[in-house]
Amino acid sequence: PSASPQPPSLPPQVLELLRCDPDELVVQNKIVAHLQQEQSGRGRLDKPSTFSLMCRMADQTLFSIVEWARSCIFFKELRVGDQMKLLHNCWSELLVLDHIFRQVQHGQEDSILLVTGQEVELSFILSQAEATLSSLVQRGQELAVRLRALQVDRREIACLKFLLLFNPNVKLLEDQAFVEGVQEQVNGALLEYTLSTYPQFQEKFSQLVVRLPELRSLSTQAEDYLCYMHLSGEVPCNNLLIEMLHAKRA
């Protein structure tokens, strides 16, 4: 359902943002290869727990998100200090949005599509996970249903990712004006795109943007849970996930 109709004129800016998106299959294969390599190094008997495996997937997905960001238009013009501040601020929202849009495309309410391309029954996850994780997964599914109902498409997601990344509310940015300018441009591009592509749905832009606070709330809950699990020693250490968690909360 998220395949968007051919718009009469695609705003060039949206095309630019879409062009920054990585090839999903390439990302998937990279992550699968990495997890397989890790597992072969661990030996057959040492089976990671479901949660530990999810952490490894999330960690590798985060690597791909950083790779996407650093190759993005506008972002590569920033100094590394500002790049780090922006990513520290929105890494968990980008991770959650990546997961949720995958479920929107998957279109199944009873199962979850993982970044590795594997499909897992929701009932299995809910039977394995304890209450907080279950509620997180459920909330993610509910947001996916709402976005699917909005017929969110890939181009809109590309814009939303930029809106999350270029957040002018991040403190102590060296080039605050630049970030504000990008936020404004992307808002304009998304508005123009939704009005020209979905003329029958004039409110689509505001309906999409209103989902961002929900996304932030969900990602904050996910961070809290990750923090709790990390303190209980459940999260594999020395990875990007934990560094970003600490950086955001420092």
Binding site: F63, V66, E67, R70, S71, V80, Q83, M84, L87, H88, N239, L240, E243, M244, A247
Partner: peptide, 18 residues
């Protein structure tokens, strides 16, 4: 004690396609 360089910083500063 020098602070361990951030993994994120290393990734952002790594040459493209490294």
């Amino acid at each position: 004690e020098p602070e361990e360089p951030s993994l994120l910083k290393k990734l952002l500063l790594a040459p493209a396609n490294s």
